[in-house]
Structures are given as structure tokens and as C-alpha cells.
Amino acid sequence: MGNLHFKETVELTLKVIGGKWKPVILCHLTEGTHRFGELKREMPQITQKMLTQQLRELEEDSVIERKIYVQVPPKVEYSLTEYGLTVKQLLNVLSEWGDKHLTMMTDSSNRE
């Protein structure tokens, strides 16, 4: 039973923050509040449509919040929610694993 719960919760985590772009978006937002255009500039390979979709999904899952300023031109800012700040721990673990993997791959290619 414990294994099933583990698998279900890992799957849920990946549903919320998984994919190609969500972790990158979250990394940027751990640095502080960003406007849409700033995020787009920091991730030039993401399309505007994909960025919009990923931000909406993160907002629906209460990981980020969107603040709209009623002004001309319109201004929208994105930031991590208090709950979303907890994702920093997970991103740190992912970064540590990526660092170990990079070292392993580098060592492996040097042996060949």
C-alpha cells in the first residue's frame, strides 16, 4: 500500500510542476516577482501561448499568483504563493541531482 501512495503522490507532483517549462518558470519566480514580458525574455524558446498556458496551470494549482494592475498599458505580475514557496526545496533537490548527473556523465565521457 505504501508503494502505491508513493507512486500516486509522485505522479501528482509531476502533474503540478512537471514538464519542460514549469520548473524553469518556477526557478525564475523563486528570484521574485516577474512580469509576463520578463519571463518571456528570460525563456526565449518558449512560445507566448505555452507560457500563458503554463502560468494558468500553475495559478490553478495555487503555486503562483497573478496580480493585475488596472492601468494603461495593463500590467500583470506573477509571483509564488506562500504555498508555492515550498517548491524551492524540490527545485534544490532537482538541481543537486542534476549536478550529480552532470558529473557522472562528464566522468563517463572522459573514460571513453
Rank of each mutant, 00 (worst) to 15 (best):
K20N: 08
H101A: 10
E31F: 04
S62V: 01
R41F: 12
K7M: 13
L14V: 01
E8S: 11
V93A: 05
D61A: 12
L29S: 00
I17F: 03
G19T: 02
H101G: 01
V16W: 00
E60I: 09
R41E: 15
L51M: 11
L85E: 07
V24C: 02
L55V: 04
K75E: 12
V16Y: 02
D99C: 06
L102R: 07
T9F: 09
E96R: 07
M105P: 01
M104Q: 08
R66W: 07
E77K: 11
T13Q: 08
G19M: 04
T9G: 03
Q48L: 11
T33K: 14
G84Q: 00
E65L: 12
T9R: 12
E38W: 09
K15Y: 07
L26A: 02
T13C: 11
G98S: 08
K40H: 15
Y83H: 10
G84F: 03
G18L: 06
L90G: 02
K7A: 14
E82C: 02
D61M: 09
G37K: 14
R66N: 09
N92T: 08
I17Y: 01
T103W: 07
T81S: 04
K40R: 15
Q53Y: 12
R35Y: 08
V16R: 00
M50E: 14
Q45A: 14
Y83K: 12
C27N: 08
R66C: 15
P44F: 13
G98N: 09
P74F: 10
S79R: 13
Y78D: 05
D107A: 07
Q89W: 01
L14G: 01
